[in-house]
Design a protein around this nucleic acid. Sequence first.
RNA 1: GCGGAUGUGGCGAAACUGGCAGACGCGCGGGAUUUAGGUUCCCGUUCCCGAAAGGGAGUGUAGGUUCAAGUCCUAUCAUCCGCACCA
Length: 690
Amino acid sequence: CDPEYYRWNQWFFLKMLEKGLAYRKKAMVNWCPECGTVLANEQVVDGCCWRHESTPVEQRELDQWFLRITAYADELLADIPKLEGGWPDRVLAMQRNWIGRSEGAEVDFGVEGSREKIRVFTTRVDTIHGATCVILAPGHPLVKSLAPAAAQPAIKAMLDSQARKDPADVEKVGIATGAQAVNPYSGEKVPIWIGNFVLMGYGTGAIMAVPAHDQRDFEFCKQYGIAIRPVIRPADGRLSDAAELREALPDDGIVENSGEYSGVPSADARTMMSERAKRQGFGEAAITYRIKDWGVSRQRYWGTPIPIIHCPVDGAVPVPEDQLPVELPLDIKITGKGRSPLENVPEFVNVKCPRCGGAAKRETDTMDTFVDSSWYFYRYCDPRNAAAPYDPKKVAYWFPIDQYIGGVEHAILHLIYSRFWTKMMRDIGLTTVDEPAKRLFTQGMVIKDGAKMSKNKGNVVSADEMIDRFGADTGRVFELFAAPPEKDVEWTDSGAEGAYRFLGRVYRFVTRNTDRADQAATVHQSEADKKVIRKLHQTVRKVTSDFETRWHFNTSIAAVMELVNELYAGEADLTPPVLAEVLEKLTLLLGPFAPYVTQEMWEHMGRAGLVFKQTWPAYDDELAREEGAEVVIQINGKIRSKITVPFGTERIVLEQVALRDDKIQPFLEGKQIVKIVIVPDKLVNIVVKG
RNA sequence: GCGGAUGUGGCGAAACUGGCAGACGCGCGGGAUUUAGGUUCCCGUUCCCGAAAGGGAGUGUAGGUUCAAGUCCUAUCAUCCGCACCA
């Protein structure tokens, strides 16, 4: 609710209004009765509200503000390849799917005995001679005039059922209107139906049904006894007979029974027919998207006020820029009754029209909070700028984001809105980047009893309870150790106990050896010292590399566990200076995973300051090196012996040693050596036969 | 239906570049400490045969490439996730 951030949200809104990217229209919108507000399409999950997962969303017709994300649909899709490799495939697939670009054609069917036209969208205009009926969505504008009065109650029921996204709607239901449509290519008359599976919200709200080549149409026409007529012949086969068809044949082939188009390959026919529609004025090639404009009006208090004043004379008038920000009144009553609480604040609502000065009313809807999250990370670069959302130069220095982290649940919410917002800002000259983030990492969730654990639900293992039992460090170590962070992890008490045991093991080792540790002592290194130093440097290297590259902290923690196991094994023989190095580095290595217990260890060791402010421990490749290379000796790819040799041992030496090996000899008796493959420091594979 | 991902011990997983499958942990079995339980410490634990040494099999399934495949290729099955009468 920072008014300065609201100011820039409102500024963006006015910019978009200027450019036609923000607009107001009356539309059927999603309504969550629990929230008492409208929701964007992206915020409806399985027909329910994204925040109330068991509350079905209703449809209401309301005047609402929209942002024209569809103006960027093509670019949002076309730029997805730029994100490949950096973003998870899953997220990109979801976005591609959500944008739902579909190439085809729109053509007008005439209505027999009327001047009306029914425009249909199809991806298969090449099959139009096989269209045996036209089906309207129950909400189609022509339904009222074409269908008989007697059918109106059934149509109303169909409409309601669609609005509820009724699961029973898997059954196809049709109502014949009795009217006839005229095929613009052939002049053929076909019946006009109303179908529950045709959606007003996609394409034109009307389809041509080609039952021979579309499975849905096939099922519908079969059910209602409507003619089925194949018009596509497979390139290497014959045209099917309608009577023998048991399912639709949706593939491309050669167009047949289609007048002048007969004999033309499907793809060519689509082009030719779209061109003809355009030439003769009854249609054109068309692209349809599944994505809809972003409805941003919310009937909530908590959000950026939409900077508009409704004047009876001048209509919707933008608040002049110098009057921004429109601030939220602080003295309000939250009723939860489904209208913005701002409506009940007269001082907020009653204003003068900026254009004519007459009495006017302020818009009381606020913006979707996803507006705020669409560009906050740009503001981070210049958070106190009072003259602009930010200085483009500062953003040019930092952007694009190298690594963004978030949950996959935002794949088609925040992550598509923020891509849109970036492109919009680019087009008004605020940034030069096309995409906000080069790389995206989607972390997994903590699962409990098979369901996702989240604060929006009740099934959380309470953090307090977990902290009481084990401490916060244990919770963190358990989660990081259970699986790599992109995977979901199931919370288990026994797993948490394991993490707790491990931290206890570390703590006991450090505290009981603190007094023995002495960096300055000069003593001879023991055998245990050598092993531990090697392991220590290997561990630092391993953990460092996990942080720098793949973030698989489960293997980092496993490596530290291995180190601790070795410390326990050699504990009695470790000398003071080695202990000093081990204690310090072990503490620092675990610091990011277990900040509390490591801080306690740090202080127990008499060290000053905070662990997380220390320099990350260094490692030495020389010290991390194994004493010798363990080389595996294989016969025909099966391991038969292992030897240890100095690093860099010559191939010829390896071969000699392998052939003389006691365990190898018996396998060579009476056999012919075909080939010897040698990988220095790794293996010798002797290929024999006979 | 379309799209994406994943299949490795009893379980979570590891194997990063084609080169020792199962690191590490959970669980389980055994031992030490303890009056006992718990804690802690140690040992064992992929499966099959074997007292052991050792041998055989093994990364969903079936093929292929290679001296060598969990890893690459082809087909197939299963599971999970997303979208879905999208025309």
